[in-house]
Simulated scan of single mutants.
Amino acid sequence: MSFTASAVDYSIPIENCKKSVDIVLNQDYELFKQLYAPLPKDMDQSIVKGMIARKHNNYTKKQYLGIHNFTIVGTEVLEDAKNSIYQTSQKNALKYGYTDELWVNYTFTTSKILLGKKKDNVTIKGKCKFGQVDGKWLMVNLLRS
C-alpha cells in the first residue's frame, strides 16, 4: 500500500467531489451520469435513481440531517490500485482500467441521528474516489462517509 502526494492538478476531481453533494441533495440523475464511471449495462435508470434516492434519504432524513459546510481537506493517491489491499479499490481499478486511485477527502457538518437521538454540529469525514481513464476522471463512489 502506498499513498503519495504529488504536484498533479486534481482540480477536476475536487470540483466533481463538490458536485456529488448536489447529486445527493437534489437527486440529480443527469449530473450523476456526467461524473460517474460507466454503469453496467444491466443497471437501468430506475436502479440508479433508486440508489441516488437512498443516498439522499441517508444524508437528509435517516443517518444525517443535511450536508452543511462541505469542505475539501486534501487528496491522497492510492498507487497501483489494481493490487491494493482495499478490495473495493482493487475491484474498481480492474473494472475500469485505471492504475492509481485518487481520494478526495472532505468534511461536512450535520445533525446526526444516533440511537434515536439527535446530535447537532457533528463533523463527518469522508472521501470521493476517482480513477483516470483515457485522460478523464471517473467518479467510482458517491459520497462515502
Score class of each variant (00 low, 15 high):
K33Y: 01
T110I: 10
H68W: 14
G126I: 00
F108H: 06
C128M: 10
I47W: 05
I67R: 07
Y36Q: 06
F3K: 14
W137L: 08
Y96Q: 02
T107L: 09
Q45M: 14
T88D: 12
K129Y: 14
E15Y: 10
D120L: 07
I124C: 12
G126P: 03
Y106T: 03
Y106C: 09
V24Q: 01
S11N: 07
V104S: 01
D80T: 02
Y86R: 05
G116T: 13
K49D: 06
Y64S: 03
C128I: 01
V24K: 04
K91A: 12
A37K: 11
Q87A: 15
N92I: 05
K112G: 13
N141A: 03
Q27Y: 10
E30W: 02
I47N: 00
A93F: 11
Q63V: 04
D100S: 08
N57V: 06
A7L: 14
T71F: 09
D134L: 04
D28F: 00
G135E: 01
P38G: 05
Q27G: 11
M1N: 10
Y86I: 14
S20D: 12
K95V: 07
R144Y: 15
D42P: 00
L142F: 01
L31R: 01
Y36A: 05
W103A: 15
A37V: 06
F70Q: 08
N83A: 07
L102V: 04
Q87Y: 11
L35T: 01
A5K: 15
H68N: 14
N57D: 08
W137A: 02
E15T: 13
Q87H: 15
N58I: 11
N105K: 14
P38A: 09
Y98W: 09
H56T: 00
N57T: 02
C128H: 03
I113A: 03
G50E: 06
D134C: 06
V8M: 11
F32I: 06
V133M: 08
Q132K: 10
L78R: 05
T99L: 11
D120V: 04
